[in-house]
Nucleic acid binder design. Structure first.
Lengths: 383, 383
DNA sequence: GACGAAATCTGTAACGATACAGTAGCGATG
DNA sequence: CATCGCTACTGTATCGTTACAGATTTCGTC
């Protein structure tokens, strides 16, 4: 009786047609079954957060029906779906994540796996922003899972696999033969890499075209008349090390310049280490006249080294660097920069993992972002 | 029978005393009850992740007992606890987060609420690192919850309250009268603010001592003989705006200098806007000879302005700036910097929210970090 | 007008954990 | 020796959701 009354009330209140009621079950016989689990017969507590039960009570439907209606299942009537959706929206229903996760295993979590150490120049920040920009329109949350790169990089991956902590993973510092990629592929955990691999596994990635960057950098330097070029490269274990080297060497060949060897340090070393090593080079007879820097922070150390050696950028040497932010453009306009849009990378990575989770083919989830030279900061016109 | 056998086997295997077994229930009568819910009688599936059920099966105990043993409940025997802990550790048991969350409401999540816009100079990055450093030793995960500051800052807070998405919240860009603080306090949601409020509500916070920063900056500038000082301040709605102003003005008074008015722009404005405004000032007859910059990125724009106006830092003007990273020290050693350790802030904030969640009194969860002048980058000694 | 199929709705069990209300055994008490 | 209280353990119900296996009604078919 109670249920039926309520159904009619609702139907009347919203002025809807009563057609749907005619064949409702329980309309007359409703109170006969065990009332134990008849959720819709028990009014929900007042201040509590709405659940399927709440909607079931309000609509007079069963919990299952409500669940299926919200999923747009084919065995639910069109009008019922409409009614359920309306009520759900009205009371601001949001599925309980714990309930869903427990039942289905779906976490609605994307995990961003970071080394605590890769934060030197704050690359993470815009990346997180980019990722969240995309996730904002989805049910996904972003969980940051750090690890100490001095330890096992597989640690966080294993944790996620063992505990089912995420539906998808974003990793960076990708290596040509990356054990994390192998593991996640084997275990069918959707992921995307920032950077590419060379294992013959087709997987989603986003990458900056470092080969092109180095190639264009060399072109530009030779256009400035520079012939003896040096490259501050990424650490050799990362994939983009070879990309950058390849571009650099192809550039040397195509534009007619020669390489000055400089392998003692790479962009992972401390600024002090880079400066000291490079200062030595700049003071030697082998000193280069053109520099390609694989990282913005590395460029800072190089500039310091050049100046310590009593030389000047834009005069004794020219320099092109990759830059994820634009303070160099402001402080050292004589340095030529190619902007690496990390925020964009974040967006692309997020889209790719979600695509992977949704089962899109990996080869459609790969993107490469093209470097472009930045123009100098515009001069003020006011004064 | 099965159960009992297993229990003995276990006890023998690890060479433990059998005392505890003598009075075990179910030792003889075990198979009599309804076996339906006797979890321990059903072997767990092979490859699956271990649950309480798994441990219950292996130890021959009930699920409840295992649960309570792992919680070190007082009504569980010491030897049983030991046994359970051992097995749990052996098989790498980790409680299912969804199960706990659904039953208890505890999410084990800390939410970092960010504006998408506050990322200009990548302050987030080291902060995330600091937070995760602390969370690594706890069951907490870090979820990043962004919002567009152009919209309702209460949005994410309401979301967390409505959906019970987190056990604790970290917010920044704190205002003197901050609606988020009021709301979370009312609703008893543990939180911590990066920055202080002025509402008479005692709550956990971590803050940089911006008053002291500005005061010491003025001291230093006057020591350099500067007398006409300007302050690039935070936006007026944030609490640390007044802190910094107060320190600045107290410094002017104590050290005998005068303020040059400069309120058109603040550190939230674009670099271009700051530069244009400041260039105008530098070209006017009112030009200051000492500058205090409330942000590192702001300082970049100020430097550009100074140079556009044909002047030179360390010569025509001196400058002190707050700096969250050290590229200024490298690129503009003539600028004096006070380091703001954002990573430390992250650590302090994380400790404070957790403390708040654990019920520690808020007044014990407040900290202020003291600014210190940085020494210049050490010169290379190698060459 | 019986029968099957289609359409639409339903209850039950389960995911893993915990709160709660027990129960069995045992020694002490009167 | 009945009873009480204590220790150490237990099963049941529940959190919110969904998979699954029915139910019930309607309608077309023979």
């Amino acid at each position: 009786m109670f249920v039926s009354t309520l159904r009619v009330k609702w139907a009347l209140d919203r002025g809807g047609s009563r057609k749907g009621l005619k064949r409702g079950r329980g309309w007359v016989t409703g109170m006969e079954g065990k009332t134990k689990n008849r959720a819709a017969t028990v009014p929900p507590p007042a201040g509590a957060r709405p659940t399927l039960k709440t909607i079931a009570f309000m609509t007079g439907l069963g919990i299952t029906t409500v669940s299926r209606a919200l999923k747009d299942a084919p065995d639910i009537g069109a009008e019922t779906k409409e009614r359920v959706r309306l009520v759900a929206k009205q009371i601001g229903y949001q599925p309980n994540r714990a309930g869903v996760r427990l039942r289905t295993g779906k976490t609605n979590v994307i995990s961003l796996v970071l080394t605590l150490e890769e934060e030197i120049m704050g690359i993470t920040s815009p990346m997180v922003v980019g990722i969240t920009e995309i996730l904002a329109g989805t049910p996904y949350h972003l969980v940051v899972t750090p690890y100490s790169s001095t330890k096992d990089p597989l640690g966080p991956i294993r944790y996620i696999l063992d505990t089912g902590a995420a539906d998808g993973v974003i990793i960076s510092r990708t290596e040509p033969h990356d054990a994390r990629v192998t593991l996640m592929t084997e275990r069918h955990l959707p992921f995307v890499t920032h950077g590419r691999t060379e294992m013959g596994i087709v997987h989603p990635f986003h990458d900056f075209d470092n080969e092109r960057f180095a190639y264009e950098a060399v072109r530009r330097l030779t256009e400035c008349g520079r012939r003896r070029l040096v490259l501050l490269e990424p650490p050799p274990n990362l994939t983009f090390h070879s990309h950058m080297r390849t571009g650099f060497e192809r550039g040397l060949k195509d534009f007619g310049a020669e390489a000055v060897s400089f392998h003692h340090v790479n962009i992972d070393h401390s600024l002090v280490a880079i400066r000291d090593a490079f200062e030595q080079l700049m003071r030697s007879v082998d000193a280069p006249d053109g520099i390609v820097s694989g990282s913005g922070s590395g460029a800072i150390a190089l500039i310091a080294a050049i100046e310590s050696a009593g030389k000047k950028v834009g005069q004794d040497v020219d320099m092109v660097t990759k830059a994820p932010s634009d303070f160099l453009r402001w402080l050292r306009p004589e340095v030529m920069t190619m902007y690496e849009d990390i925020r964009l990378a974040g967006r692309e990575l997020a889209k790719a993992v979600i695509g992977h989770i949704e089962g899109k083919p990996p080869e459609t989830l790969q993107s490469l972002s093209q470097p472009e030279f930045q123009r100098p900061v515009s001069k003020s016109r006011k004064v």
